[in-house]
């Protein structure tokens, strides 16, 4: 597992897995979309609109997951002085921002017909909006400092400070009354979703993960090359 913390080994490993991952992500995306649009049934309440879920939920999960990865890498990079962590942070931040944006946009597209509004300021929606701005600030930090060694550390510290937002996003629907419904799939209880709708959701999630990995590999490799040329 050394390729997760060492840029040379990462390069070697990435070269091996890049093509399979790329193919897999395209195939899974196509299969997932077919499932989502044609094979999955309508919801008993929401009818056909429920299909937005197959984009909304994976992107929401991935936006959180990306941040979690960045947090872990920040700790690794700062505490154990592994510069590869900084490289990952720089490379992955825009991906997280895009996923968050997709989540917000698909969510409001879903909210308009179902709730009757594009946007409300309840705890979940607000905290996700904050997450998006945090991603933006990380990107800003990464482009506005002149010294690479400074900005990567500052960004890592900012990521750690901003990670306070993660549990708020995750548990906002459980702690407080919100317009947003509680989590459908949680570890403690049986998921309250029918298997026929669970399948496309899972396929789409895996597809999103692979898309994320594909872009991340590309971005990390460019980042490594840019740093070698400073």
């Amino acid at each position: 597992m050394r390729f997760l913390i060492n840029s040379k080994r990462f390069n070697v490993f990435a070269d091996i897995i890049f093509k399979p991952v790329l193919v897999l992500s395209i195939v899974l995306l196509i299969v997932g979309l077919i499932f989502a649009f044609f094979l999955s049934p309508d919801d008993y309440q929401q009818g056909s609109t429920v299909r937005i879920m197959y984009v909304h939920v994976p992107s929401a999960w991935l936006s959180l997951m990306t941040y979690l990865i960045m947090t872990v890498y920040s700790i690794i990079a700062l505490a154990f002085r592994m510069p590869f962590g900084f490289i990952v942070n720089t490379a992955v931040a825009p991906i997280g921002a895009i996923f968050t944006l997709v989540c917000i946009i698909s969510g409001s597209l879903w909210g308009k017909p179902m709730w009757g509004t594009w946007w409300v300021w309840d705890a979940r929606l607000t905290s996700v909006a904050v997450l998006f701005i945090i991603y933006l600030i990380i990107i800003f930090i990464n482009i506005s400092f002149e010294n690479v060694r400074v900005r990567e550390k500052i960004a890592a510290i900012f990521i750690l400070v901003g990670s306070i937002n993660l549990p708020i996003i995750k548990f906002s629907v459980d702690w407080w009354n919100t317009l947003h419904q509680p989590a459908t799939i949680s570890k403690l209880s049986k998921p309250s979703i029918d298997p026929s709708m669970m399948t496309p959701l899972i396929i789409m999630t895996i597809a999103f993960i692979f898309i994320g990995i594909t872009i991340a590999i590309l971005r990390i490799k460019t980042e490594i090359i840019t740093r070698e040329n400073i």
């Binding site: 049934p41 309508d42 179902m114 709730w115 419904q181 029918d194």
Partner: peptide, 18 residues
Amino acid sequence: KTVFAKHDENYMPSSIKS
């Protein structure tokens, strides 16, 4: 002034529900 519908976390096909 405004009415929002709040849906729950259960998703299931309409055929199964009937």
